[in-house]
Nucleic acid binder design. Sequence first.
DNA 1: CAGCATCCCCAAGGATACTG
DNA 2: CAGTATCCTTGGGGATGCTG
Lengths: 149, 149
Amino acid sequence: MIPQEKIEALIRQSHAACAALSDDDDGLKRELLAHAGNRWSLGVVHALGVSGRLRHADLGRRLAGVTQRMLTRTLRQLERDGLVTRWDHHETPPRVEYELTALGRELLYQMIPLWTWVIRNADSIRAQRLAFDAAQAAEGAPASAQGSR
Amino acid sequence: MIPQEKIEALIRQSHAACAALSDDDDGLKRELLAHAGNRWSLGVVHALGVSGRLRHADLGRRLAGVTQRMLTRTLRQLERDGLVTRWDHHETPPRVEYELTALGRELLYQMIPLWTWVIRNADSIRAQRLAFDAAQAAEGAPASAQGSR
DNA sequence: CAGCATCCCCAAGGATACTG
DNA sequence: CAGTATCCTTGGGGATGCTG
């Protein structure tokens, strides 16, 4: 699907980029990429990207199942990394809005191809997983194959 | 840096892609993206991308600080998701080699822009973090500023 | 050499209750 | 409404030792 030479060129490029990293950067890099693996970060960035400026409760409504605690936590992390801005209107009752920063928008922009790729390949990966798990099960308990438990 | 309209077009695209997801896919998607946040997954994929087929011990040598346990674990996860192939030569002493699958290469290919972006922005993010932490500290303990504890 | 078993620590994530 | 505090569970990550 993707020409081999192109992949190799890109790998060389990434290799050069990787070699340019200090040990210190390595940790930071992973922390940044960890947002992709965090339970709610992607959802927050995506919701803010789609809807612009949103209040805490609005965000909570869009992310089904999130608790206030985790939402606040996630927002703090994103704010700390400069991906999200917090707008506190200092009113009573409280009124706080969140918005993507330029950096956050860029990150979203960078994420989309990866994201789309994962979604496109979700089916084949799920099938692969099932096959793998089946193979593992067959290997792990061949003696008790018919003994159920 | 990136035109606003382009971002919005991409966001709409990602929104459409996201809307196409079932609840089931959502978990899978995050699990896949979690490889980006895992301690060693990226390193393994990168090393295999750069060097082709590698033995367990060779991989261990390239990833400074990894333990056999975590290396094996990581490889199993990647194998389960169809990103890495395990070649067991069934010899004694054991000889097992690992290699990226086509899917794994594609993932690496998809990752590189994001990766490069993070590296490019590492400095500004680190600065942002320091500022944020300083602000938090100033806000959290202004009363006990001189009282230490 | 490859990798499993065991024990351990800690942060992510969550449920619940409370406050300005 | 936005957020903190508290308690709990789970899994990532690691150190060490053993085996085919």
